[in-house]
Write a protein that binds this DNA or RNA. Sequence first.
DNA 1: CGGTACGATAGAACAACGTTCGATACAGTG
DNA 2: CACTGTATCGAACGTTGTTCTATCGTACCG
Lengths: 235, 235
Amino acid sequence: MAHLQNRPGPGQGRRRASHSMESVLTEAVALLDEAGAPALTFRALAQRLGGGVASIYWYVANKEELLDRATDHVIGTVLAEIEALPGSDDPIDDLRAMAVTLFDAILDRPWLGAYFMRNTDVQGNSLRLYEKLGRQTLRLDLNALQRFHAVSAVVGVVVGSAVDMGQEPPEEVLDGSVNRDEYLGRYAQTWRELDPEAYPFVHEIVDEFDGHDDVDQFRSALDLTLAGLRLQSGA
Amino acid sequence: MAHLQNRPGPGQGRRRASHSMESVLTEAVALLDEAGAPALTFRALAQRLGGGVASIYWYVANKEELLDRATDHVIGTVLAEIEALPGSDDPIDDLRAMAVTLFDAILDRPWLGAYFMRNTDVQGNSLRLYEKLGRQTLRLDLNALQRFHAVSAVVGVVVGSAVDMGQEPPEEVLDGSVNRDEYLGRYAQTWRELDPEAYPFVHEIVDEFDGHDDVDQFRSALDLTLAGLRLQSGA
DNA sequence: CGGTACGATAGAACAACGTTCGATACAGTG
DNA sequence: CACTGTATCGAACGTTGTTCTATCGTACCG
């Protein structure tokens, strides 16, 4: 009889898996870290948790919520790093240190760039981070609107840079057959072959582009914004 | 006999559709414009073209290429707008005008934000746009590295702001049951209910956030970066 | 102790998607 | 007429997010 299945004893047969919100989020983040956003599927996650696919739906309503919770999870650790920052007497320097910390976290986890700031959800760690950044502007001589725009600008610079480098490398560098510098070099070479009259700027910066560092690029963009902010605050 | 199907005459039966690269791209963009990125599927596009699904694969290798070509297609029109700009004696003002033009185009087509700058592909319109922006920095007293970073920063601000507003509104505003201001108002309300001691900054700017304009937010971020750039160029 | 409600798990199925395959039509050329 | 290359299309495949329904196991209660 089909319904008289032999029950699996506690050491043989299939055990029922027992999860928790924590374990679901941890394994989800692990999948994202190991192979990026496309690797996080409900089936892969279920297998990793040693359970069934539908079980995950008891913890999250859908994939969007899974992504939201996973990002919020790691933003929590970033927030802890930021709160552990020493702090100085210059609010703009502190703002810079926080932005750099955030950017470094995104460099470690490129998938974060795409999903960060997707939800400034109430009570989330993103909001706490937003507050942390904004509190520095309270030390500056600005009005409320300027403060609002200043924090948006800083976050914008981080996200803008992160999105740029968050895109998946085109597989020949992923499988290691070509490293990043080599890839950049090929790109630079095609640029060098363009007509110098039609593309004077591209020729001007191609040597800088070749083998450039993403962190330098971000730091420069951030410094420009912060310089403008310092000017605006009259300090 | 099954193989002796009656041929469809020119006026009855199923006609074979005849496409072109242009029509494929145009209809793809139309789908994106009407209902965003998720609306662009091979089946929807095929139906719109009055043909079969597999036919599209004669023009593009896969969806990534379809997106790339569609994006490049509209960037072409943006490029035309930018080239039609009057121009002034201040390179930074010109840079601002170009960035604003680009941003406006993304406001019209929110899906553009996510795919723009995904390929600075050789010979693409993105590269031409990049060149156009960079040429303004040639008029500034900067070195090559500074010029490279300056253009990256400006593009970063545009992308960063665009990503922020490129995310789909959460369906209650999409179906028109709640408009954007109402939605922002609700959000602001939950922020107002937070502990003022724990969230002093959020309380400071909540009135500015409520009913804020995305364009103002972008312009402010852009102005900060350009102010920093002007400072750096010593003008 | 037996029953029952509920928290939690899981297999199977569904629809939609990107993609591939094989067959077929059409136009031009010999 | 046959041949060839361009262009088209229906059907199928594998994978994805999601839902349905059935089940397990434990805590509580009579």
